[in-house]
Design a protein around this nucleic acid. Structure first.
Lengths: 107, 107
DNA sequence: CCGGATCCCAGCGGATACTG
DNA sequence: CAGTATCCGCTGGGATCCGG
């Protein structure tokens, strides 16, 4: 017998909830690779709008995936870094990269 | 110096292209776990519409991730299964599950 | 039971302009 | 540089009906 299920039961729901939005995985990839600044991320992701980038960064911060730190230099700079929780996404990103490299040209 | 880049350069682009659509990861998860039929998938994913499920299945088939096999039984049955290429997504799905289980309740 | 076809709409996110 | 504000087009996808 098949018992009633809710989507919350799906064991990948929490991470899907985070990375499935458009551009989100790319933003995470950039931060994971040490690209920690708004401007350099925008340049690394041609086509992303400033609105989307800032929305994604705020979402990731609110979910505890990244931190936003303002340095009181002149001019002030802002750095985004992965939290512990965010760093634990690394296996996902790495396996995504490996699959992509293997199958980037069909098969 | 930062050289000009295109999004195609991003090494996770192929897989993001496949799994980033709404519901896609869940559908893959079901097939990966041996849920190979349209109806049982629809029941396992409460909230998905028939249109979305069928759209996703066709997309995954066209990308070579799954196969669609019609069995000439009475009544006919259809089975979806992962191709080799699709099976190679397993490390991604597994690491997604591990992260989700670890962080499902905040931290 | 396994979907295809059609209609329709909210909401995502692109464009653009503006601020500290 | 690092965003915010507003406006709005477009597409993803939900609802519904239909066919094999």
């Amino acid at each position: 017998m098949e018992t009633k299920r809710h989507l919350d039961d799906c064991p990948i729901q929490p991470v899907v909830d985070i990375i499935s939005g458009k551009w989100t995985a790319y933003v995470l990839w950039e931060i994971y690779n040490g690209n920690n600044h708004y401007g350099s991320m925008a340049r690394a992701l041609p086509g992303i709008s400033s609105r989307t980038l800032s929305t994604r960064l705020k979402m990731l911060e609110s979910r505890g995936i990244i931190t936003r730190t303002i340095f009181d230099t002149n001019p002030p700079t802002v750095a985004y870094k992965l939290t512990n929780k965010g760093n634990e996404l690394a296996p996902i990103l790495i396996s995504m990269k490996e699959w992509s490299e293997r199958f980037k040209n069909g098969d």
